[in-house]
Amino acid sequence: MSLKPFGAAALNQPLIGQPGGRSRLETPAAVLDLDIFERNIARLAQTCKRAGIAFRPHAKSHKCAEIARRQMAAGASGICCAKPGELLALFEGGANDLMLSAPIASAAKIDALARAAARGARIGVVVDRLNLVAAYAEAASRHGTRFDVFVDLDTGLRRSGVASAQEAVALACAVTDQASLRYVGVQAYQGRVQHIEGFAARRSANNKANRLLTAMLDVLKQAGLAPGIVSGGGTGSHLLDGQAQVLTEVQPGSYVFMDEAYNPVDIYGAGGPEFGPALRVAVTVVGHSSAGFAITDGGSKSFAPDGPPPRVFLGGALVGRIEWCGDEFGRILPEPGYGTLPIGTVVECTVPHCDPTINLHDFLHVVSEGRLVALWSIEARGRAD
């Protein structure tokens, strides 16, 4: 269910379709360049298709039901979610094939997931302990539904999952014993691999994780529990995972938007990130400091600052970088040859880290060339529950 525009989005709604509307946005505003976004979507889908590997994109990067629908239309096998609240918000927004990629400990949240499944959602969950298997089985049985279940394997991230093949077998056996659960596979996510900048170093780290994973998969197979799906990976490793053919599907997230943290990562071994910066945050110069800097209306409440500083663009030209000067404000450090931008100038900035940045906004302002073409609601914004 799309949200009715409010705040800056409501003020910007009349600009939809108007020439030059992109440069007249009320700000701060999350801006999605539709042309770059569509190229990113298509490129990943084509790469995975050529490699014969499925992709189940991670919605933690976008939290938007419309983007989830477009990923499914591009061939995704489903959509990953980080938290139950995120998953349930996307379900209410119209997304239907959803996987919760982390274990949880709340009976109330498990019950909410089972109720959604009973209403028609296909929901996959991961398990890393026997009592969680039992909790999912009881809730699904009580609501007359069924969960798809992935056994969570730790291949070096040290965050969740079991690290021994014997524990994996025990969990898979427990799942198969429950009529309200369906054992569909395993998950093995190695997040530390994703942002290794050099292609060769990233391949080496990914191979190390795959050796641990392969050993566990061999034991599962010997026990008659060979997983149908082996899920993991991400934006930084999806090409390598397609080449290695250990995973059967990957879980990329940031590729739809990209950010400054991923910008140095040589994803395809060709010297660049391969995906374009589709997500920007538009801000307005609202004043000039006594030191002569342009001050913008976007600070840490508009950008998640856990990454390299944003680059600032005006009409496609790089004019500076943002330096934080408060929760509400930033200052533009100009590129050589550029002076202080006039008050009222609207600029677009790249983002340090796309996942937590999108969590600060309620709507995406979808643009193509110089026009605002749509507003997409970010249904799971703020759903860290």
Rank of each mutant, 00 (worst) to 15 (best):
T155I: 13
L157P: 05
L157V: 07
L157G: 02
R158E: 10
R158A: 12
R159D: 05
S160Q: 00
S160I: 01
G161S: 03
V162T: 07
A163Q: 10
S164M: 08
S164E: 15
S164P: 02
S164L: 08
A165I: 13
A165R: 09
A165E: 13
Q166V: 15
Q166I: 15
Q166G: 15
E167C: 06
V169E: 02
A170V: 11
L171I: 07
L171D: 05
A172S: 07
A172T: 05
A172L: 09
C173A: 11
A174G: 10
V175H: 02
T176I: 09
D177S: 06
D177F: 00
D177K: 00
A179V: 01
S180H: 02
L181P: 00
R182M: 04
R182E: 14
Y183M: 09
Y183L: 08
V184W: 12
G185K: 02
V186S: 05
V186A: 07
Q187G: 09
A188V: 03
R192M: 14
R192V: 13
R192Y: 14
V193D: 14
Q194E: 15
Q194F: 11
Q194H: 14
Q194M: 13
H195K: 12
H195Q: 14
I196A: 10
I196S: 07
I196W: 01
I196C: 09
E197G: 01
E197I: 01
G198W: 00
F199R: 04
F199K: 00
A200I: 00
R203A: 09
A205L: 00
N206Q: 11
N206S: 13
K208W: 03
K208I: 06
A209D: 08
R211N: 06
L212Q: 12
L212C: 05
L212Y: 06
L212F: 08
T214D: 10
T214I: 02
T214W: 01
A215I: 07
A215K: 08
A215R: 08
M216K: 14
M216S: 12
L217T: 13
L217S: 15
D218W: 04
D218Y: 06
D218I: 12
V219Q: 13
L220S: 13
L220H: 13
K221E: 15
Q222Y: 13
G224K: 10
L225S: 09
A226Y: 04
P227R: 00
G228Q: 11
G228A: 06
I229E: 15
I229W: 09
S231G: 08
S231I: 04
G232M: 00
G232Q: 01
G232N: 02
G232S: 03
G234N: 11
G234D: 13
G234S: 10
T235F: 05
G236D: 10
G236I: 08
G236M: 05
